[in-house]
Design a binder for these strands. Structure first.
Lengths: 204, 204
DNA sequence: GACATTAGTGGCACTCGGTGTCGAAAGTGA
DNA sequence: TCACTTTCGACACCGAGTGCCACTAATGTC
């Protein structure tokens, strides 16, 4: 597996040639190009050329072109995992999940614009839509892990997997709603969607 | 878009050269090869050679290698759409959905083996997992359409999309469960999963 | 039987994403 | 200066997918 190194450049590097760029910088550049010319229309060669690096080097920063818009998804995921693990046993399971998911999707206002750009790409570009399934798998894993622990069931049992899959489903639905409405509040939409789910869609 | 012709060979063809094979025949052959050697390890060239057709011709039967294991998914989808449309207004929405989904996944016993083979490929091969999102989109569309009509909301509103996404989620979770247990009853698992969803996971 | 017509075939060349290899570049410390 | 380490990037290669186009094989007509 390719590591997808998040070269921060802030580390106390000891030796060896310095990286020519960083994943964050590359992502920033690529996202601009994707937004301007379209995802399919922008080749990896284009990005590498624009970044002044070799095509081969691009693939040392990202495992695939599809992975570019995901930022530090795995890092964020670890935060959510920790948050779920820290929940007190008294708090109801769905309540914990709800809070964790809202937290996971709470971004500083300054990042709102990039989030919108990233999610527009991911949710509206077929190739990225498809690829998202693979990234979402680890998200589902974190949820399922938590539910399984709570319910005393195996992670791969029906209930934990069903909870994870449905929570992912409503989250994505909320994101799509958010993208459609210009000034919408993402967290409010997520909360509404999770509410529908928790009540078995009685409100409809 | 490539039409993905389902050449039955039973039609009263009038004129022109006859197709060298059929999508069903090609799918059958390809699935055997995928199961034996693996999906990634089997190239389109391999399949075409084994089928005695040109590589170019393969892509007239299937829009992509990823589309091979999907059989007549779109046709089945139309049946479900019709079934939903035919539901009486009195029957509760979730009950209609539940029945339609169970029907959609009820196969003649003879096809059970192929279904398992197909779903194993789709759910366990990363490339096919990813691609499935694109095929599932139309499935979700059919559900959302029905819910929207019932609820008097736009198809792209939050509630219809959330209902569709969650029903897809639990269905896939049930399928994964079915694949894991050798002699499991798919319809029973789907029913159980849909039950969990309808009750807001109170049983957990 | 020669003919147009029609539908399907398949070879060719090309683009693009992705990978393995390997030598060169650019840092570090001794 | 030299050894060591890390990253870079050129090159060659593979496989999916596409546009193009001539060819094949079927039908019906004069």
């Amino acid at each position: 597996m390719v590591p997808v190194v998040v070269t921060t450049g802030v580390d106390g590097r000891r030796t060896g040639r310095r990286p020519a760029t960083s994943a964050a910088e590359l992502e920033h550049l690529a996202l601009q190009m994707f937004t301007k010319r379209g995802f399919e229309e922008t080749t990896v060669d284009d990005i590498a050329r624009a970044a002044g690096i070799g095509r081969r080097t691009f693939f040392r920063y990202f495992a695939s072109k599809n992975d570019v818009p995901w930022g530090d998804f795995d890092g964020q995921l670890e935060v959510m995992r920790a948050s779920l693990a820290a929940a007190t046993a008294g708090e109801p399971m769905l309540a914990v999940l709800r809070r964790a998911i809202l937290d996971f999707n709470t971004y500083p206002p300054a990042e709102g614009d990039w989030l919108r750009r990233r999610m527009t790409l991911i949710l509206r570009t077929p190739a990225l839509q498809a690829h998202s399934t693979l990234r979402y798998a680890s998200w589902r894993g974190v949820i399922a892990e938590f539910v399984a622990r709570r319910a005393g069931q195996p992670v791969d049992a029906l209930a934990p997997q069903a909870v994870a899959a449905t929570h992912l489903g409503v989250s994505v639905a909320a994101y799509e709603q958010w993208l459609r409405a210009e000034g919408a509040d993402l967290v409010a939409l997520l909360d509404e969607a999770l509410g529908l789910l928790a009540t078995g869609f009685q409100a409809i």
